[in-house]
Design a protein around this nucleic acid. Structure first.
Lengths: 254, 254
DNA sequence: ATGTCTTTGTGAACGCGTGCACAAAGATGG
DNA sequence: CCATCTTTGTGCACGCGTTCACAAAGACAT
């Protein structure tokens, strides 16, 4: 789900379907776990189970990258980790700036998943002068007056917006003007950007509303068909088959 | 966008496509803004622009809810706000618990978008005894020993998991056993749940990796076709057409 | 009451993504 | 060297979602 998903309609990036790209990080995470346990090879069936997807889907996804498997054996874990990392562009360093150091911005700054994947928090930026200089997650917050200079000096191309909704578009405009071409937006607003700039949106409020919809539906069915076992029965299913993808979710005031 | 996306394959909830459900909150937000400006009616074209979607798609989405528009005029803003709210189940109160009060959990607890949409933080739960009793966002943190009792006493059906990856599955199991049937998961793990339980995943790490992929592709094309205007040119596009869906995104250590 | 103009609601075509099912490839054992 | 068994890679069909394009519906003016 998330809100994000479905990038530029009908435009495969280098032949790799968007849906596949969105799953590669999932595979990578599962593979990394296997790698840490020193597992040498893995079958599509096993890896698919670990990632929570269909094995045929996984094989087709990998087929877009090339033929990295060995029939009768499976996939070489280390090799696959490298190939996917390379494909995702994680073998290089990506400096990232976070704009808006409120509760969420601070949480993101402290987020451990950055460094482990080639992402580096180059700077924290906030509009509040009182925040300037104060260290968050070991990094001193800088004032937004210097936004352009910070972007340029650090060669930042990925920006994270964690400001209130009202400030998001102006901040976005400044980021783009300064050279940022990818934006992860946590503010509950639709951002307008020029062609060539990618935006992904994370909106908690939307995710909760989608859950509420299904929750209400369940409650309704319970009354209608007052039989056939309660909701907390049945066999285990993999949750990864559910949450969209994508789509795309968030974490700021609505 | 994002990661989520695509719930229970091929199962329309009451005839409303999942993709439509995922957009309803988007429309609702745009409509709420119009309502606050006392705009009486809005055309599909205008509303679509505000929500960042295609107008035909919006009309088709609304057609699943019923015929709430007036030809030649448009849609009544207030009426539509009510209909969508009702459809999403936002006219009732949804008590929510947040488990794992780290940086992210605290950010979520302080999140303003809850109350405004019928969501109420019923409790904050953490495994650290040192956290117990300490107030976060005005709500005292409770120890996870009491998780089951808290769920039952408050009639909670929606749980938010903001724990480290390792604790997510056990916490999930306990939530489900206690009666929770919808889970918003911020931990970077694939959760296994019984049938009838909905899980949506928000994974920041995945979102960033998807951005990195496109960023790398842009950089590659720049070298290949060293012409045709830089990346920061062209006309403005609406970003909502991009971020998945769906897909589904996150905010915890990988 | 009639005509014009705006905007909805939807039929139909298209494209992407998914999953089945199987042939080809290679490992492994005798 | 051959047979067998495992697992990949993919052709194919199906279904959902998107978009176009237009007829029907209603407002509004005359």
């Amino acid at each position: 789900m998330a809100t994000g998903r479905t990038h530029r309609p009908a435009t495969r990036s280098r032949g790799i379907p968007e849906a596949t790209v969105a799953r590669l990080p999932l595979y990578l995470r599962a593979l990394t776990a296997l790698s840490e346990r020193s597992v040498p090879t893995v079958s599509s069936e096993e890896l698919a189970a670990a990632a929570g997807v269909n094995s045929a889907k996984l094989r087709k996804d990998f087929s877009y990258l090339g033929s990295y498997g060995t029939r009768g054996v499976g996939y070489d874990v280390e090799y696959l980790v490298y190939q996917i990392s390379r494909e995702l562009g994680l073998t290089q360093d990506w400096p990232v700036v976070i704009v808006g150091i409120g509760n969420l911005g601070a949480a993101l700054a402290n987020y451990g998943g950055f460094a482990s994947r080639g992402f580096r928090v180059a700077a924290l930026i906030d509009a509040d002068p009182a925040m300037a200089g104060k260290p968050v997650a070991g990094i001193p917050v800088q004032h937004s007056d210097d936004l352009e200079k910070i972007i340029e000096d650090n060669g930042v191309s990925i920006g994270v917006i964690a400001t209130p909704a009202g400030a998001a578009q102006p901040v976005c405009d400044r980021l783009v003007a300064a050279g940022v071409t990818s934006i992860l937006n946590f503010a509950p607003t639709v951002l307008s950007v020029p062609d060539g700039v990618d935006v992904r949106k994370v909106d908690l409020s939307i995710e909760l509303q989608i859950l509420a919809f299904h929750e209400q539906r369940k409650a309704g069915e319970e009354h209608a068909a007052a039989d056939g076992g309660g909701p907390a029965a049945a066999t285990r299913t993999d949750s990864a088959e559910q949450g969209p993808d994508g789509d795309v979710p968030a974490v700021m005031p609505a």
